[in-house]
Structure formats: structure tokens, C-alpha cells
Amino acid sequence: MVRVKNRYLVVNILYPASSPAARAGEAVPELLQFHAPTPDAFHTGQLVRLVREGIAELFGDYGMGMANRTLKVTYWSPATSTAIIRCPREHYEMVWAALTFTTKLPRPIDVPVVFKVVRVSGTIRKAEEEVIRRAKGIITRAREVEKGRKDVIVEGVVRAVEKRAEPDAVLAQVDEGEESESESDSE
């Protein structure tokens, strides 16, 4: 049977600008500020409109016609600022580029943001698994911090890098493969 092929983009919303809580003088770690929850006023309908406007701005009517066919937000979690966006397989790059060019959330909220696509998947199952994996990672990290212990994995990586970070010892550094994996998985 012939199916309509889609791509599922797992998107994280990051908040690089300082949040109101931090401005008020509370000591919030910067890592948490970047991964702040999204305001409740922002819902899936607005996200779709945001993406559509981005495509219309970058690619015009052609892009709208091509990408709009199956464009949909299939999952949205304001707490972790994570979304899964479905789009046609041939034109997922346009949707991705539109997300890259977005700089802030629409009018009533008006917060500067950075959209980061963390995974491109061909099936919604794999996209959901990725979301769950990331959420689990955040929870374990938060628990470690609560207990007062340091993040074991991150600390290990830091130590390993520091060991290598003699002034000019750059000759043996390994490329991080994560990004390319997410690319290859998209096939």
C-alpha cells in the first residue's frame, strides 16, 4: 500500500535571554534558564501558525503549498518546551529552516527564543522515544543535583577533557557523532 511519507521533527525551545525570575535577583542556574518552561498562553495552534508564517516569509507561496499539506503539531509539552512537528518528507528542510529563522514567540507572549531541532525521525514512535529519553535524562540530572551530587556523566566527560586540555593538546579530539546520527536516522 502506498503511504504518504512524513518526517517528524523533535524540537526544543530554548530561552537564551535572561528570564524575569533571574532578573528579579534569584540565583537560577543558566542551564535551567535556557530550558525554562514555555508560558501557558502559548499553545499548539500558535506554534503551527508560527511555523506557517516562517515558511511563508522564507519560501513564499511555493513553500506554503509544498509544506502545508501535512503540517501538524503532534505533541506539545510546555513543561519541557518540547514539540513534535509533522511535515512532508520531501520538504522537511524548509520547515526546519523556518524554525531556525524564528527569533521570538508571537505577539501576546513576545519572548525571544531559539528553536533547536534535536531529532529528525521517519516514524512517530522513534520521535516519541527520543522525547522520553531526553525527559529521563533531565529527570536524572535534576535528581543528582537535588542530592547534591554532581552529574556523574558530565563530570566524567569534563574530567576526561581537562586531562587532555594541556595547553595545546588538541591533536587527538574526537568528533561528536550525535548530530550525524540523528541525520542518518532520518532515512
Binding site: P16, T100, V114, K116, S182, E183
Partner: peptide, 8 residues
């Protein structure tokens, strides 16, 4: 705000 992730 102008910074983007490597994959983007």
C-alpha cells in the same frame, strides 16, 4: 539570539 545549534 543569533546563535544556532550546529545541526540547525
Amino acid at each position: 539570539l543569533g546563535l544556532r545549534a550546529p545541526s540547525d
